[in-house]
Design a binder for these strands. Structure first.
Lengths: 390, 390
DNA sequence: AGAGCTTTGTAAAGCTCGGTTAGGATAGGA
DNA sequence: TCCTATCCTAACCGAGCTTTACAAAGCTCT
């Protein structure tokens, strides 16, 4: 009868919970005085004061310039540590990888970003990542608190392992976070790229304060990240949201996962390129297809219709399945142009339960994976440090 | 910049959190002494003692018979209040409705159940529900703490409204929980039946302690309830999990929701009956189809294959989408018989990502909706009373 | 320059809660 | 009767939040 619970709850935990709440508030308010936090959090002034002191001592906050004009005594502003603490974001992707360093404020700049071409072997990838990370770590002003590795494919976040990555085979069964952790001696966490994009959108983007939203990437693969009830939907192993390998056409072509007719083979930019290539009878490129579509070539009309239909079904599925308040869709061919996306949305309207659709605003969107990786490590640090109450 | 938070956190909240944890433990351990709770919870003995006293005073617990044989002083057992508190469960369903009264222990018996045929009009339904509820309330030994109404269809749990119910049209746009609340003067909450089944399975069934599992009902409709991270997956309006109206065949027949080729029209017992009827060229019944299948009649082989295929796709979808550790499937024709279900599972194996499937055990299952409704109200009471830490 | 106003931040006392310690209560067995 | 094992709680302590009170810091007006 072992129903043991891990963390007995005492007063110290209460403090942690409150400090975490303050951290999350400061994340939203950027730079704020103790008095401002008092108003925003509903806690009392002394509580806030002591908690802020504690957070300052822990190096999670910094004093910032008290440029404040108003009546009364000017407040001493605090912000998330941007100089005294540093986190790394690692993005492994098709074609290019990048590594970025930032403070806890998540301020990502080109100056703090290093890019390189994705190598052919995993060993070489690791070497590159290590080298670039070390350079950024050497240049960092603050202590390194950890890194997040953002990858495409199917990711087992519980085991911290990439199950398989149809477009980036060198990642199959690999564990870059643990490998980097060994090499660099800092905490590393592996997250699916759509998970990181969700976190980023919630911390820094258009999903601030939203508790239920989703992020759909239909460029090369068909990736989905879902934030539900203010928490990342993970399932038992962090593989929840694998819509890409759901059967859309039982008789469709074979997918990299072994199944037939997966959304990934029917509703992405890559799928559209493949269909147009079949129509043309020769290989083609995303750029060429984009041009053909822009010129309203009849050679791709059928393909556009097919992919639009399946994309609409996919979007409808997300809305019906997760009932989000916002859905961010990230893609090129069918999402970038306003009228083509409107066409897709028209089909979505026919495929979605009205009430779920009424809840939901669909936004074409491109957020940065760099920013996502940073959001990922910050989320991980906060989450493992203190629980939240719900 | 109003980022106000509802409940400031102080010492009283800490107490609530701990009392809630104890409540949930007692729910699992049925009848347990303070010392047993101390061991199971990790809290200290005095803390447990004080919390139990508080719960006793609030009427959420009762002393129970100290039948305990062991070394040392026998403990004084406590259990969830079964005599001093009463909750009602209301199940509205196709054909029959029932109302059941129970203590907080969730002990559902035939003696405390009242059944009646589902009337033709909503007004008559309400009258019936009110009458039966009043009878049970009059007979109840404890104070009434609330009721949960369990319904099929698409339910907006945020607005507490049934959006539409394809098989029970009299519920469309209705709000039986609020209506009953007005008539009976007790707290009522409306939940989708699969939500209640999830809760029931977690509290009393085979999902005790599981944090990620799902409940799929493929009898008349195609209903899904998901428990993710220990919380019911709700989305913004509690409509998450609406797999039933997801497009499985873009050219399929029209569904009650207006869309074409929904799972609900392809992967349920009702769908199988419809297909067999088409094959026979005349109307038929579930019973007749069951007999035909048992006799391995060739007249339904094709239909069984089609529905099995779509059911497999649906099950695969649930596993890929929510990555549960267990999936409970509730149905008649394809689930009840071991070999037919094995056939479906074989197809699921071909449709599911291996790692997600490896995480998941699929269990054919029939849990009681009565028990679900009781679980629903108890969950609601606990949940609105005290938060949990995560 | 100084009084007055306004807002900020914190020190001190008090309350609540969980933890610690210690001791009484209740059973069976020697 | 005494001992052992276990259960339960009273009394006190420390952590953390709240209330109260007050000092600090800037602005405006005289």
């Amino acid at each position: 009868m072992a129903v043991l619970i891990d963390n007995p709850i005492g007063s110290p935990l209460l403090r942690l919970i409150n400090e975490r709440r303050l951290l999350e508030l400061i994340q939203q308010l950027r730079s704020v005085s103790r008095a401002g936090l008092t108003r925003a959090s509903g806690m009392t002034a002394p509580t806030v004061s002591k908690a802020v002191d504690s957070l300052l001592k822990r190096g999670l906050l910094e004093e910032s310039d008290p440029i404040d004009q108003a009546l009364g005594r000017p407040g001493r502003l605090v912000r998330l540590a941007s100089e005294s603490a540093t986190v790394l974001g690692v993005v492994i992707d098709l074609g290019n990888c990048c590594v970025v360093a930032s403070g806890l404020d998540g301020n990502v700049t080109e100056a703090n970003t290093e890019r390189f071409e994705t190598p052919d072997t995993y060993a070489s990838l690791l070497d590159n990542l290590e080298a670039h990370c070390r350079r950024l770590m050497a240049a960092a002003t603050g202590t390194i608190r950890g890194a997040c590795v953002s990858v495409p494919g199917v990711v087992n976040e519980r085991l911290q392992e990439i199950v398989f990555s149809p477009n980036l085979h060198l990642l199959n069964s690999r564990n870059p976070a643990r490998d980097l952790e060994k090499r660099l001696g800092i905490h590393c966490v592996l997250l699916h790229e759509t998970s990181t994009l969700c976190l980023s959108e919630r911390m820094y983007g258009n999903a601030k304060g939203l508790r239920d939203f989703a992020m759909l990437d239909v460029s090369t693969g068909f990736g989905l990240g879902v934030m539900s009830g203010g928490h990342l939907l993970s399932g038992h192993s962090g593989m929840a949201g694998e819509l890409g390998h759901l059967t859309a056409d039982p008789n469709g072509i074979r997918c990299g996962c072994g199944n037939r007719g997966c959304f990934e083979t029917l509703a992405t930019d890559s799928a559209l390129v493949r269909l147009v290539a079949e129509q043309l009878g020769r290989p083609t490129t995303l750029q060429e297809v984009a041009d053909l579509i822009r010129n309203r070539s009849s050679q791709c009309e059928a393909a556009v219709n097919v992919v639009s239909e399946y994309l609409a079904i996919g979007i409808a599925a997300v809305i019906n399945l997760y009932n989000p308040t916002s859905l961010f869709v990230h893609g090129k061919l069918l999402v970038d142009s306003e009228d083509r996306f409107a066409m897709v949305l028209e089909r979505v309207r026919q495929r979605t339960l009205t009430p779920s659709l009424a809840d939901c605003t669909i936004v074409p969107n491109t957020s940065s994976k760099r920013q996502g990786a940073i959001a990922g490590i910050i989320h991980h640090l906060v989450n493992t440090w203190a629980p939240s109450v719900r």
